[in-house]
Amino acid sequence: MKTTNYYNTFIEVADDCPVKTAEVPPIRGEKTIANIEFELLVDNPYEFTSDDVLFHVHAAKRQLRTQEFDVEREQFFSKGQACFRSSPLTKRYGWGAHFDADGRMAIYAVESDEYQQYAKDRSLKQVKAMRSKKG
């Protein structure tokens, strides 16, 4: 099974992130990937891994029933998935993601003191979110 989990890592917002202060992803009709990720992570810091969050989004978008989760999760991770560096939270909405030693994650607003601390912490692997535009 493939994984998207990070350990002792901080994902900084993308270089071309359009916001200087973090935004809550707006809800317009059906919930977006950003809405689902945000709701999971803002209310449950360090409860989920990246794999948990990405599968939850997949399950929510496909309206899977919980009894289908085990089989679906195995199938979902049987092929590679984009990691959290490609999340709209880190690319567009100004949220950094910290992963602890167990791979559990929490998000931090780019303007927050916590974000600045994690971004400077050399004991963590530092990676940037993927850019939205090529170049």
Rank of each mutant, 00 (worst) to 15 (best):
M105Q: 14
D52N: 11
F55D: 13
K31I: 00
M105N: 11
S132H: 04
E23Q: 15
P25H: 12
E111N: 07
E114A: 14
W95H: 05
P88C: 06
R131E: 03
I11A: 09
L124H: 03
W95Y: 11
A22K: 07
F99T: 00
L40F: 06
A109G: 12
E37V: 08
V110W: 08
Q63T: 11
K20H: 05
Q116I: 05
G80S: 12
E47I: 10
A101W: 04
K91C: 13
A129D: 02
L40T: 00
Y7T: 09
F84L: 15
G103V: 07
V57P: 08
K128P: 00
A119F: 09
V24A: 02
G103H: 08
V42P: 14
V71A: 15
R104H: 08
W95A: 07
I27P: 00
T4W: 06
V71H: 14
Q63I: 11
K128A: 08
F99C: 12
K20R: 12
G135R: 13
A34S: 14
E111K: 10
V13T: 10
F38Q: 03
I11S: 09
G29K: 01
F99P: 00
E47A: 14
D102M: 07
E30N: 12
I11D: 10
R73H: 10
V57W: 01
R65P: 06
E37L: 15
R62P: 07
A60E: 15
D52F: 04
N5Q: 12
E68H: 11
A119N: 08
A109H: 05
A97D: 09
T4K: 08
E12W: 00
K125C: 01
K31L: 10
T9Q: 13
M105Y: 04
M1T: 08
L41K: 05
G29S: 03
G80L: 06
L64V: 10
V24I: 13
K120S: 14
K120A: 15
Y108S: 11
A82W: 05
K133Q: 12
V57S: 02
E30M: 06
L124Y: 02
E30C: 01
S50M: 07
W95K: 06
P26H: 00
N44M: 08
N8L: 11
M1Q: 13
M1D: 12
R85V: 05
Q126R: 08
F99I: 00
A34T: 10
S87H: 04
L41F: 09
G135L: 03
I11W: 10
F99Q: 01
F99N: 02
N8P: 09
F77T: 00
N8F: 05
L64N: 02
K91F: 01
I107R: 15
A109W: 04
V42K: 14
F48M: 10
P45L: 07
R62C: 15
P25I: 13
Y93Q: 02
I33C: 15
Q126D: 04
F55S: 10
T21E: 15
I11Y: 10
Q116M: 08
E30T: 12
V24D: 01
A59I: 14
P45S: 13
K133D: 06
K134D: 01
V24P: 04
